[in-house]
Structure formats: C-alpha cells, structure tokens
Amino acid sequence: MPRGRLTPADVVRAGAELADEVGYQDLAMGALAQRLGVRTPSLYKHVDGLDDLRRRVATLAMTELGEAVRAAIQGKAGSDALGGFARAFAAYVTAHPGRYTATIGAEVTGPGDELYDASARVLESMAAILRGYGVEDGEMVHAQRTLRCLFHGFAALQAAGGFQWSGDADESFDWMIGFIDRGLTSEAAVQDLR
C-alpha cells in the first residue's frame, strides 16, 4: 500500500488482522509498520501509539460483532434468536481471536465513546433476545453477563483447541444453547406464576 494512501482506518484494520494472526498480546507497532511497508514513526500520523491502536481495534471488533449478531437474529425470536446470536458470537470469536481479545477489559467512558456505543449495540441485541424470554430490566445485566460468559468461554476454548476428547464440539454447543433456552423458558414460566 503506498504511503500517501494510508489512512487511520487502514492502520486499524491491518492492526486487527495482525492481532488475529499473532495474538493480541503480540500486537506491536514495529510489526504493524513492517506489514504496511512504512517506518514505525509514520504510524503515529494515524494512531497515538499502541494503546490507541488497541482501543481502535477493540472498537472495530465490537462494531463487527454487533453487525454479525444483529444480522443473525434479524426476524427471529426465542430459541432461534438465541441460537443465531450464540453461533454468530462464537463464529466471530473463533475467526477473529486477536481482535476479539482486544474487547476484553477495554475501558469505556460512556455514551458518545465509539467503543461504548459499539458495545451497547451488542448488548441491546442480547437484551432483545432476553426480553423475549421475559427477563426484566432489573435482571438484565445478570442475564447478559451469564450469556456472554457461556458463549465467550465455549468459543475461547474451541478456538484454543480445548475440546480434544471424543464427541463433536458443535453438538455440545447446540446442547448448550438448548440448555440455556430451557432454563430461560422455565424461569419465564416461574415469573408468570408470581
């Protein structure tokens, strides 16, 4: 890519690709400059250092994840929406492990912060599914955290080759979705009786 055409978006996208290839912890400005065919100081015209690059990669990842899960749940409800979300989430994590890792622990400042807004879109997709199961606003954050832990944990283990014993991991994933669906459905029935 010619130097004159390099944009901040090009730098961030190349950084995200590099993080996916070498791992988020090994993302470095020197390696990124080499990939882009520029000297390291040239990158500072586009990003304010490694911390800024990492934050921008996290924002890109949350934006992409939000688009993927919204597309997967569009027009669906109940177990179909839950399964669509879970599969899209897991597919993103396994396809983009470095950039997804950038999202873990990335600090947000509030509305108007691009990372906050991108994260909020993912959470709203999750909330829409959970509202369909009757999860009330007072319990929403707990339900969202539970689902993220389950989907994140499964996908991270699968991406790291953590399921090496017999049995199809995809079948286990489908079983987990069914287990969650049954639990949410049962909880909604209990709430209806109160």
Rank of each mutant, 00 (worst) to 15 (best):
L123A: 14
F163R: 00
K76G: 01
L65D: 05
E107G: 02
P111C: 01
L157I: 00
A68F: 08
E67K: 08
V135S: 04
I104D: 00
Q144S: 06
T146V: 02
I104Q: 13
G78Y: 08
G153F: 04
G132Y: 07
A77V: 10
F89Y: 15
G167D: 01
G98F: 10
E64F: 04
S79A: 13
S119C: 07
E124C: 02
G112W: 09
R99P: 08
T63M: 02
R87C: 03
F163T: 05
A128F: 00
F85Q: 12
D51Q: 12
V57H: 12
A68D: 15
D51L: 06
E171S: 12
R145Q: 12
G98I: 09
G153S: 06
R99A: 10
V93P: 09
D52N: 11
R121C: 02
L147N: 07
P41F: 03
L53N: 05
V69K: 09
L60Y: 10
H152Y: 15
T101N: 06
R54Q: 07
T94H: 02
L50Y: 04
R148A: 13
K76C: 00
A143C: 07
G134I: 05
L82Y: 10
A155M: 10
A169Y: 03
R87G: 06
A95T: 11
D51T: 11
G132M: 07
G138P: 01
D48W: 01
I129E: 02
A58L: 03
L130W: 06
R121W: 03
